[in-house]
Amino acid sequence: MRLPGAPLPPRSCLDRGTRSPTNDTEVNAMRAAAWHRHGVAALPVADITDDWLRQAITNEANRRWGRRNGENHHGR
């Protein structure tokens, strides 16, 4: 309970539930910023239409960071 006229509690990045979920426009803006500022490309693998390129990117990501949880292993 807050007293009338009392100051608001301090804001914190740990305070969950005060911000709405990130939308697609904001995510794309963050991807663009990562590319322009840091040279990091964040691409959704499902959006890559070339089979060979998609598999090459998946292989490199698996090599660097390990397989994703819930990844389809195609029978392996």
Results as ranks from 00 to 15, higher is better:
3 L>N: 00
69 N>D: 14
10 P>D: 06
10 P>I: 04
18 T>Q: 15
54 R>H: 02
18 T>H: 15
16 R>D: 07
76 R>C: 08
73 H>V: 14
64 R>A: 03
8 L>T: 11
44 P>A: 02
4 P>N: 05
29 A>G: 14
65 W>I: 02
25 T>F: 10
12 S>W: 00
59 N>G: 07
56 A>H: 11
19 R>C: 11
14 L>R: 15
11 R>F: 10
59 N>S: 07
65 W>N: 05
55 Q>M: 08
9 P>Y: 00
44 P>R: 02
60 E>W: 07
21 P>A: 01
31 R>L: 01
57 I>R: 02
13 C>Y: 08
62 N>Y: 09
43 L>Y: 00
29 A>E: 15
6 A>G: 03
31 R>D: 01
67 R>H: 10
34 A>F: 09
74 H>G: 10
64 R>P: 00
34 A>C: 13
27 V>I: 15
32 A>R: 01
76 R>Y: 10
5 G>N: 00
39 G>P: 12
6 A>C: 04
34 A>Y: 05
63 R>Q: 06
46 A>C: 03
16 R>Q: 10
55 Q>N: 08
4 P>A: 04
74 H>Y: 13
46 A>L: 03
71 E>R: 02
33 A>I: 11
44 P>K: 01
14 L>T: 13
23 N>Y: 08
2 R>I: 07
2 R>C: 07
52 W>V: 14
54 R>F: 02
42 A>P: 01
60 E>R: 07
75 G>N: 05
29 A>W: 14
68 R>G: 12
56 A>D: 12
62 N>F: 10
21 P>G: 00
7 P>W: 01
56 A>R: 12
69 N>M: 14
60 E>N: 10
29 A>I: 08
71 E>Y: 00
60 E>L: 08
60 E>I: 04
53 L>K: 04
14 L>D: 15
22 T>F: 13
19 R>K: 13
22 T>W: 09
21 P>E: 01
45 V>S: 06
18 T>P: 11
53 L>D: 08
54 R>L: 02
76 R>G: 08
34 A>T: 03
48 I>C: 07
16 R>F: 06
24 D>L: 03
2 R>A: 11
27 V>T: 14
25 T>D: 05
17 G>C: 02
47 D>E: 13
67 R>P: 04
75 G>A: 04
